[in-house]
Design a protein around this nucleic acid. Structure first.
Lengths: 239, 239
DNA sequence: CGGTTATTTGACCGACTTCAACTGCAGTGG
DNA sequence: CCACTGCAGTTGAAGTCGGTCAAATAACCG
């Protein structure tokens, strides 16, 4: 079976000790994976918050849109991440869930999540922790959109994606698959596509990184982290 | 007794039905109020997350700072708001709690919060809801810092503070006490103090609002909301 | 009343946007 | 096999929004 709960379990076990019954219960949630094209809206702002989404493969974005088409990406979810697993207590969605690439995910009704949390307190705790980690990442992005210059913000985003990629075991020693188009990066950081491109070039010519297709090679990791003033604490990764 | 749990209770009851035992338990948390001057840091990033803060009076901000002094305010907490009441599952703080005015608040150890949530499931739910509402407000601020022009962003912030003030019963029909200095507004929206001032003037001369000291009078509410494209849904206020 | 902090205004500058055009690449169908 | 299409990336020129610097006024407070 190509997609199962392994990644979700691995993600939660990075910060929460689970026993085999926890794992079994969690695996029971991922009975059927569904697939979407890039650019598809899984759920829209205003919809009832009736299901959580467990991402199995690909990139899912939490977005908000303005009437004239301006878009802000307010969160990124990768394989193993759970969206809205503690959202049941609010009646309606307040943002869209949009696929940024081809995505495989499991849709889990809130009722099943609630039942699970009731029966397995450690899972409730783990999902709670994930939700708080996502909120912390959102606050850090606010620092980027609000107070960091474009080059600092881009360097910071790269450092974050690199760190999360490493945490998933998907990053090489000094390179990883960069999961976003430059347009999507702009929507994360509140920049125009053109400027994202210029800043990428600046990071290239100053010898901080290289780009070949989707592969991003970090040439000068310390330099990149210095430019971003990157401190990974806010990710709450290792215990 | 000048400060008690009344506001906290009223806030939670706006979205969650509590019975008298819930209320009693909540009131038991607010045994002693403490007081701080404006500009005081109650808790700093990196500290152990050992207590929640119930705001009884004044304005508390969640902030993040860069090494060179740049500051981003990532959340505002008013009377009745609870900070980190569901934070126990993370080991450390990821932001500072800073008073923006004189503040009265109750410090509640996480152990008491946990015990309370265990015994009163409705309170857990209510506090959970508050945390999700705060996260939603943070995402909306990202739209302002990332994708809104300065005048739209300021108009939007004013609309939000007006709405929250009305929800607390502290706003007149078309005016309310504006709780922030222009410097603090800049740190919320990622703008310089000087520019905040200019945009305030612009909103004045275009006839949207008036300012006399701390009192902000909304002259043209619909116009202000139109400029901000303000939709209050993200606040999850009314049921 | 003096000292501090908040607000206000002007002049200048630069970071980022907008507009427009061109390249390269992958898919698709004739 | 190769034109055709569409999208991601790239680059240049010109304009604007918002920042910085500096200084003056206004409000606040002991």
């Amino acid at each position: 079976m190509p997609f199962d709960a392994r990644r979700v379990i691995a993600k939660l076990e990075a910060h929460t000790e689970l026993d085999s019954s926890d794992r079994l219960a969690l695996a029971g949630l991922v009975t059927d994976a569904r697939f979407w094209e890039p650019g598809h809206t899984l759920a829209a702002s205003g919809d009832p918050l009736e299901a959580a989404v467990l991402v199995l493969e690909g990139v899912l974005a939490r977005t908000r849109r303005l009437a004239d088409g301006r878009r802000q990406i307010v969160g990124l979810l990768f394989a193993g991440d759970a969206a809205d697993a503690v959202g049941a207590v609010l009646p309606r969605r307040d943002d869209d869930l949009e696929t940024l690439s081809a995505v495989a995910a499991a849709i889990v009704p809130q009722s099943r999540i609630s039942a699970l949390c009731e029966a397995f307190p450690r899972l409730r705790e783990a999902l709670q922790r994930e939700a708080l980690m996502e909120a912390s990442r959102a606050r850090e992005w606010m620092v980027s959109t609000g107070r960091r210059a474009a080059d600092e913000a881009l360097a910071h985003l790269i450092c974050e994606l690199w760190a999360r990629s490493k945490a998933l075991g998907q990053a090489g020693n000094d390179s990883f698959e960069f999961p976003l188009t430059q347009q999507q990066v702009g929507d994360c950081l509140g920049l125009s596509t053109v400027h994202v491109n210029r800043v990428f070039r600046q990071l290239r010519v100053t010898g901080l990184l290289r780009l070949q297709g989707r592969r991003l090679s970090v040439v000068d990791g310390p330099g990149l982290q210095r430019l971003a003033a990157f401190e990974s604490d806010y990710l709450h990764l290792a215990p």
